[in-house]
Simulated scan of single mutants.
Amino acid sequence: MRVSRLYLPQTLEEGAVLQLDEESAHYLRTVLRLKKGADLIVFNGDGREYSARVLTIGRDGVQVEIGTGRSRDVESPLTIHIGLGISRGERMDLAIQKAVELGVSRITPLFTEHCVVRLDEARRGSRRQHWQKVARSACEQCGRNRVPEIAEPIELRDWVVGSEGLRLFFDPQAMAGLKDLPQPEGTISILSGPEGGFAEKERILARETGFIPVRLGPRILRTETAVLAALSAIQAIWGDLG
C-alpha cells in the first residue's frame, strides 16, 4: 500500500512531535483522510524525507511524531528553468503540475503580448502563492523532496534577457527539433508561450537574445500540452526519462 506524503513548511527533526498548521491539518484530515496511528512520509523541501505517524487528530488539531529521516534524491540531472506564458486557471495549474513531475528546477510565469490574464500587484502575490502550492502538491504526489521555486511573474522581455545556458523556445514555425541539438551543459532555459502563442516581435526578441526555435512535431499544441511534451522529450533525450 502506498504511504501518503505530506509537505510541512517547518523544521523536521527525528523524534519531534509537531502540531500541524491549519492548512496541513485540513489536508491530512479531509484529503488524505488519515486516522490516528496512520503512517506517512513528510518533507520540507530540503532534500530529506522522514517517516512519521499521526498521534492525534481532531477538531483541536493534528499532531504527528517524526521518525527516521533519510536523503532520497530523485532530482533530474538537468537544471531546467522554464519561462512560462501565463494562461488561465486550470491550464496554468496543469502546466506547473506536469513540469514539476517531469523534473523542472524553476518556473517563472511570464506576461506576454497575447497573455489573456492580467494581474495587479495584489493578485500577483496571491496567484504566485497558489502556483507554489500546486508545485508542492505535485512534489507530494511524484516523490520529489525538493520543491521547485515559482518565481515572481515578470515580463517576457526581462526574462529572456536574463536567461542563461542552452536557450530554447518552442515555435511551430521552427525547422529544428530537439534531436538536432548537441548535448547541453549547465542550465537549460525554456521559453514556452501562452494560450495565444508568441507575437512575431517576441519570436524576434527570443532569437536576438540567443534562444533557439525548436519544433515539437507538426501539430499545434496547447500551452499545457507543449510543456508536458517538451519536458518529456528533453528528459528522454538528455535526462533521466526512459
Rank of each mutant, 00 (worst) to 15 (best):
K35G: 13
S189M: 11
E202C: 09
R53G: 05
R215I: 06
L55R: 15
E14K: 03
A25P: 10
R70P: 02
I107A: 03
D171C: 10
Y50M: 05
E14D: 05
I80H: 13
L12W: 07
E140Q: 12
F211G: 07
R215W: 01
R123L: 04
Q132K: 07
N145S: 04
R203G: 03
P109Y: 08
A176L: 10
V147I: 15
L178P: 12
V117C: 07
I66E: 00
R128N: 06
A236W: 02
F198A: 08
G69I: 07
V17D: 13
A151N: 01
L166Q: 14
Q10H: 04
E152P: 06
V104P: 10
V104G: 03
P218K: 10
D158A: 04
T30R: 15
S163Y: 02
E13Q: 15
S87M: 10
P148D: 07
G85E: 04
R203P: 00
V117E: 04
R222I: 01
W238A: 05
K35H: 09
G196C: 06
I188G: 05
I150L: 06
R29H: 01
A151R: 14
G197W: 08
F169E: 08
I80T: 12
P182E: 03
L119F: 03
Q63C: 13
A230K: 14
A16N: 14
L6W: 13
C142W: 02
M1S: 10
R29D: 01
R2V: 11
T209N: 11
T108G: 04
K179V: 06
D120F: 09
G193K: 03
L191G: 13
D240E: 08
L40R: 11
P77M: 07
E195C: 01
Q173P: 00
L221Y: 00
T56L: 11
R167A: 04
K36Q: 15
R128K: 14
P172W: 12
L78Q: 12
I150D: 01
I188Q: 04
P194R: 00
A176T: 09
R146I: 15
E224D: 13
R53S: 08
R106T: 07
P153Y: 02
E185V: 09
E164Y: 00
T79M: 08
R222E: 05
E185K: 07
Q235C: 03
A16T: 13
C139Y: 03
R70E: 09
V100H: 09
L84K: 12
G15T: 01
R106V: 07
M92F: 07
S105H: 15
C115A: 14
Y7P: 06
D60E: 14
G67Y: 13
T223W: 08
L8F: 07
P182G: 06
E121Y: 10
E185Y: 00
A174H: 15
E23P: 00
P182C: 02
L119S: 09
D39F: 04
L168G: 09
V42P: 02
S189C: 12
L18Y: 12
S51A: 13
I96W: 05
G242L: 04
F169W: 11
L94A: 14
K35F: 10
I150Y: 00
G165P: 09
E195N: 02
G83Y: 13
A25K: 09
G239F: 12
G197I: 07
R219W: 00
D180Q: 12
E113P: 03
G162S: 05
F198Q: 06
I220H: 08
